[in-house]
């Protein structure tokens, strides 16, 4: 149902690093890690707060919540460590001519 929507320029996100963007009125955190781009809902499933200020661990492929340290898998959104136990929503990203496009997960 949803299309790829332009969200950011590749050059805006250092590796490793994150960028908070708004895609169709949803807040999405774009992650650049080990040469790849990922997109997750900017929501920690533990306390519902934002993830976008958290540190990226490129080797483990995770983004950690800045408040209580719950780690989320960049590829799937899965919760890897306590205190989170549920995945955060993960979205598809593609890079074309320096522009990052996000396709929102329907859920």
């Amino acid at each position: 149902m949803s299309a790829y929507i332009p969200a950011a320029q590749e050059s805006e996100i250092p590796d490793p690093g994150t960028l908070l963007v708004e895609v169709a009125e949803r807040l999405i955190v774009l992650i650049h890690a080990a040469g790849h781009f990922y997109a997750l809902d900017d929501v920690c499933t533990h306390d519902g707060g934002p993830l976008s200020d958290g540190p990226v661990a490129a080797e483990q492929g995770t983004l950690a919540c800045p408040r209580h340290g719950a780690q989320f898998d960049l590829k799937t959104g899965a919760a890897k460590t306590m205190p989170a136990t549920k995945a955060t929503t993960c979205h598809e990203v593609k890079l074309e001519n320096g522009t990052l496009f996000v396709r929102l997960n329907a859920e």
Partner: peptide, 9 residues
């Protein structure tokens, strides 16, 4: 540290 990680609080 798996149940309560150092970054918990």
């Amino acid at each position: 540290g798996q149940i309560i990680s150092s970054s918990d609080n």
